[in-house]
């Protein structure tokens, strides 16, 4: 297991170089048998959206990103103390798909589990009506991460007021060495 923590202060963000720091570490530590180009592309998407989310939303003064690389998983965990996602303040039933955004291309769902984690999923919609472009949402951050990740979970710690976004990208090096 290889891991490293990166900390970013809001007033000193340099988006491109901050992202590059993390991607550089991932590039150095991924096993050589992993699909490196694909994982670096996905990791860059995820890290960009996580840091952009921190920059956009009120109350975030610092953000930490923990990267962990095991033999099969690349895990990216973002923590900050900004305002929680509004989803957390609603009393959704457990293990039920709740649509949180919907347009002619996708429906994005949140599912609350018994551990108070919110897991994100999305469905693609058959698009017949090109005239409905007017209805396309203009906020793609959660959707991009959901479609890039193998697992995307959000957790709000009510005691510490900490937001935790955990993204897992799975890879299978075993395919290189079939049994």
């Amino acid at each position: 297991m290889h891991s490293k923590q990166f900390e970013f202060l809001k007033n000193s963000y340099h988006l491109s170089s901050d992202i590059q720091q993390i991607i550089g570490f991932i590039n150095d530590e991924l096993p050589s048998t992993a699909p490196i180009d694909e994982l670096l592309f996905k990791a860059k998407i995820v890290v960009t959206e996580l840091l952009t989310n921190s920059l956009k939303h009120a109350g975030v003064n610092s953000t930490t990103i923990d990267v962990k690389i095991s033999g099969h998983d690349l895990s990216i965990l973002k923590a900050d103390f900004g305002n929680p996602l509004s989803l957390i303040q609603k009393n959704y039933p457990i293990n039920t798909k709740i649509p949180i955004s919907n347009d002619i291309l996708h429906t994005l769902y949140a599912i609350l589990d018994s551990g108070k984690n919110i897991n994100f999923f999305c469905d693609e919609i058959n698009m017949d009506d090109i005239l409905a472009v007017e209805n396309i949402v203009e906020h793609f951050g959660l959707l991009i991460i959901t479609k890039t990740a193998d697992k995307f979970t959000y957790h709000y710690n009510e005691q510490t007021k900490e937001n935790l976004f955990e993204i897992t990208l799975r890879f299978n090096t075993a395919a290189i060495f079939p049994a």
């Binding site: 998407i45 291309l105 996708h106 698009m127 090109i130 472009v133 396309i136 793609f140 959707l143 991009i144």
Partner: peptide, 10 residues
């Protein structure tokens, strides 16, 4: 990235 979120359709 555009294809990922299907903006290539619009």
């Amino acid at each position: 990235l555009l294809k990922l979120i299907r903006l290539d359709k619009v």
